[in-house]
Design a protein around this nucleic acid. Structure first.
Lengths: 226, 226
DNA sequence: CAAATGCTTCGGCCTGCACCAAACCATCCC
DNA sequence: GGGATGGTTTGGTGCAGGCCGAAGCATTTG
């Protein structure tokens, strides 16, 4: 009757509206405090506290006490990708009442999916690399070609430390607002940090939103032409 | 508050023990009848009927009426991989009381993960191909090398139609009983059907179990040496 | 020290939902 | 046709779990 891993436990945990809202908020990759999460989920602090304790105990969340604040974040990329998988499924089986993406138009354009670019900016990066032959697109398996390596290096991103990581260099991630593929994996994360480090764009504190500066936008566009 | 796809709905659906058991049973890829699923979940027929209706309405299940039987199957590979993602997460965050794999020893050895080999047989295939250089293992991205193509063709599997599919040829799938990688994707499925077609092994009706014949086992082992 | 802030624990209310038994359709077989 | 088998619908019961207010700790600030 109950063979295998306890998929029920985890799914039930995610299956509560309040908890799902918190987890979705944490998909931004930022660590949020308990009260921020309570506000995000539209519940009172005591209720939130209970939920967070359960999520932590199940190993989905990671908690750091700092002064009188408790910061929470997703426990790992594994958790994030399981959530994205569910979101993708929900979007594809999408019910009538399901909104197709973020209500905020700015969020549709450039935002963060865990730790890499999503939204139309994320899709643009992927398309640009794919059409120019920098990636061999084979659905899920998308190794970087030599030409691609050269191009990334030219942007000023050092590939060596990325390759050394256990994390896959390139991973395809399906976006639910655009319903198209964008670039995840170590390289996706590196491009995002490159964009913020070089002043192309800034991340809005406490949100998944990314805003491009005027100059940054044009540099971004020339770096990833379509 | 509720932006994005309705992840809650789907997760809550999976988060019920009875429904989770049914879905897990269907991960075998076989279509099962309503009463078989009721038995599998340990509930009465009326209760099962209600659950199945919900799952179908949410687009997770696919129903085919045939005579007086109603056959159910997972609605697509998307659903299957979301389930496997959850199972993987559950296994890694594995709780004390979670059994690490199927109670049935035979099931640990050779069984089906949606439509390809899993268990130790599945792991063996993957290891054999990987160590001989037939696959370039790069975590998730695992393209087949020319040497690998040759070797698969020698087994009597025609690669051309597989490459034509939209489905990725090779995909790495993490197994929860072995906690190791095995081969999914179109090639994984092709190897499984090759094994049954050539009489190496037979699938037990209504189960995820695969039994090798004596002769089949030795042929399998020589085809995939370690 | 007292006051304020952030979070957790406790106790009690209440809704939602899984569950079954009995009755009701549909299909096949004799 | 009647009887058997497989599924679904309906009605009613009961429990799990989400929710909040009030009270209790911990930490920082004045």
């Amino acid at each position: 009757m109950k063979e295998g891993p306890d998929i029920t436990r985890i799914a039930a945990l995610i299956g509560d509206p309040a908890r799902a809202n918190m987890l979705t908020a944490l998909l931004s990759g930022k660590a949020l405090t308990a009260s921020e999460l309570a506000h995000e989920a539209g519940i009172t602090a005591p209720t939130a506290s209970g939920h967070l304790a359960k999520l932590e105990e199940a190993g989905l969340l990671w908690r750091r006490k700092q002064g009188r604040h408790h910061y929470f974040a997703l426990a790992g990329t594994e958790v994030a990708s399981a959530l994205e998988a569910l979101a993708g499924l929900a979007a594809s089986k999408g019910h009538l009442r399901t909104r197709t993406g973020p209500r905020d138009l700015a969020l549709r354009e450039a935002r963060v999916c865990y730790d890499h670019f999503a939204g139309s900016a994320g899709v643009r990066i992927f398309e640009s690399l794919a059409t120019s032959g920098a990636l061999t697109v084979d659905r899920e398996a998308i190794p970087l070609t030599p030409a691609g390596e050269e191009r990334i290096t030219a942007l000023g991103i050092d590939l060596a430390p990325l390759k050394a990581k256990r994390r896959p260099l390139c991973r395809a991630c399906l976006d639910w607002s655009e319903r198209r593929t964008h670039l995840a994996g170590a390289l996706g994360a590196a491009i995002l940090s490159h964009a913020t480090a070089s002043g192309w764009a800034t991340r809005t504190k406490g949100s998944r939103l990314i805003t491009f500066s005027k100059k940054g936008a044009s540099e971004f566009e020339s770096a990833f032409p379509i």
